[in-house]
Simulated assay, not measured.
Amino acid sequence: MQALRSRRWAVSWPADGTKSRERQFAEEYARYHDVPYCVSVDHGSSALVVALEALDIGPGDEVVVPNLTWVAPVTAVLRVGALPVLADVDPRSGCLTPETAAAAMSERTKAIIVVHLACTVADLDGLCAMAEGAGVPLIEDAAQAHGAQWRGRKVGTFGRIGAFSFQVGKVLAGGEGGAVITSDPEIHLRAQLLRADSRRYADGPVPVAAMELRPDPLVMGTNYCMSELTAGVLLDRLPHLDDENAHRAKMADELSAGLAALDGVGVVPVPDAVDLRSVYEFGVRFEPDTFGGVPVERVAEAVSAELEMAVWAPSTPLHRSHMVRPETKRRFAAVWTESGRRRAVGRDYPGAERYRETTVLFYHRALLGDEHDMADIVAAVGKVLTRRRDLIG
């Protein structure tokens, strides 16, 4: 409400003598991750573009992207003029692995984007070691893992850059919004300029009626600035994140134990190195013939009907997704040639296909319930399991 009534709804407006809320949020979010730098942006997709451009990635370069995620990492790579090369994922977690990433690399690879998917964390020990050995920077897309921790350290801080989304469905939500975090001062400076039309925060106090951003010719930018209203919501919500994550993690353990008692049913695994968990989408896994071999969409539909709650199959792997169609835009013609397309998607992806065929998901808000609610979810899955012949019919 203070942001609304201030009439200063964007950082690109005369200041009232205080720091903008989007800058305040960036400082709080950096502090939360125990890193020195964060830059707020308008969307998670913009965060990925800023991350890539901060690393000076562009035409002629390749970026390894997991085949099982939202389309944003692929479109971000295309938007900077580089070629996204899709790598397969682990069939149980849906995450990129050191082996699948390495198999997709070439001498043109200039970065690897790892996505911590749904309710788990990718193998950061292995991926960091592999990327370092190859001399290639790792970008962590932690849009689905706010607050998760790997060996006592927040995810998003292991790669050269961490990218986040605060879209309405996320566990830390501002409607829309995003951020990049880093420990590299040069990347921080470039990120400021890239997201604010070649402007950065002025040094020293912010005088009344002055502009908080000042021009800097280091690098040409674009306007990806977060609104003050979004920043106000995020400043309000951030202090609640850890408590809500802790409750969701407790309910996830309760739910996992209940599902484990059902024949052929389990959950998406979480590595032992994860000592604080974040759940964006909870994943229920099952063996291929558990429900009589019916399509995963039918299983999700049946569980959803029992619970009167949305349950769905994972997104279609990106190599056959209708969202990945660079040929529909002339701006991508130089990179999305026939040879470029073959390089990007011209291989088999058994891990991604197996994950999609054997997993159903639902949103994190269900985990803000109690033990009785978790028992209801287990009962619903169990009921569908006992009546699987109805699914076949």
Results as ranks from 00 to 15, higher is better:
1 M>Q: 10
4 L>N: 01
6 S>H: 03
6 S>V: 07
8 R>C: 02
17 G>A: 09
19 K>F: 10
19 K>D: 15
22 E>I: 07
24 Q>W: 02
32 Y>I: 05
35 V>M: 13
36 P>I: 04
38 C>P: 07
38 C>N: 04
42 D>A: 08
42 D>H: 04
51 A>C: 04
53 E>Y: 03
56 D>T: 13
59 P>I: 01
61 D>T: 06
62 E>D: 06
65 V>M: 07
69 T>L: 05
70 W>V: 09
71 V>C: 07
74 V>D: 03
81 G>T: 04
83 L>C: 05
83 L>P: 00
87 A>L: 01
88 D>V: 07
88 D>M: 02
92 R>N: 11
102 A>W: 06
104 A>D: 01
108 R>N: 07
109 T>A: 09
114 V>N: 05
114 V>W: 03
117 L>C: 08
121 V>H: 07
125 D>C: 10
133 G>W: 08
135 G>E: 03
139 I>W: 02
139 I>P: 08
140 E>P: 02
140 E>I: 07
144 Q>E: 15
145 A>Y: 09
155 V>Y: 07
159 G>S: 07
160 R>H: 13
162 G>M: 01
166 F>G: 08
167 Q>Y: 12
169 G>T: 12
177 G>Q: 13
185 P>N: 08
186 E>R: 10
189 L>D: 12
190 R>W: 10
196 A>P: 00
198 S>I: 01
200 R>T: 06
200 R>P: 08
207 P>Q: 01
209 A>M: 12
211 M>K: 03
215 P>K: 05
223 N>D: 06
226 M>Q: 10
228 E>I: 06
230 T>V: 15
238 L>W: 09
240 H>G: 01
241 L>F: 12
251 M>Y: 04
251 M>G: 09
254 E>M: 10
256 S>E: 09
257 A>V: 09
259 L>V: 01
262 L>I: 02
265 V>L: 01
265 V>C: 00
266 G>D: 08
273 A>T: 15
275 D>V: 08
275 D>M: 14
276 L>I: 04
278 S>Y: 04
280 Y>V: 02
288 P>L: 09
289 D>T: 15
289 D>Q: 14
297 E>W: 06
300 A>N: 13
301 E>R: 14
301 E>V: 01
302 A>P: 10
302 A>K: 12
302 A>T: 12
303 V>L: 02
311 V>S: 00
311 V>H: 00
313 A>P: 11
314 P>T: 14
314 P>C: 07
318 L>S: 02
319 H>V: 02
320 R>S: 05
323 M>S: 15
326 P>S: 08
342 R>T: 15
343 R>K: 14
344 A>R: 03
345 V>R: 08
355 Y>K: 08
359 T>P: 13
364 H>Q: 15
364 H>P: 06
367 L>D: 14
368 L>T: 12
369 G>Y: 00
372 H>T: 04
378 V>Y: 00
379 A>E: 09
385 L>M: 07
387 R>D: 11
388 R>S: 15
391 L>S: 08
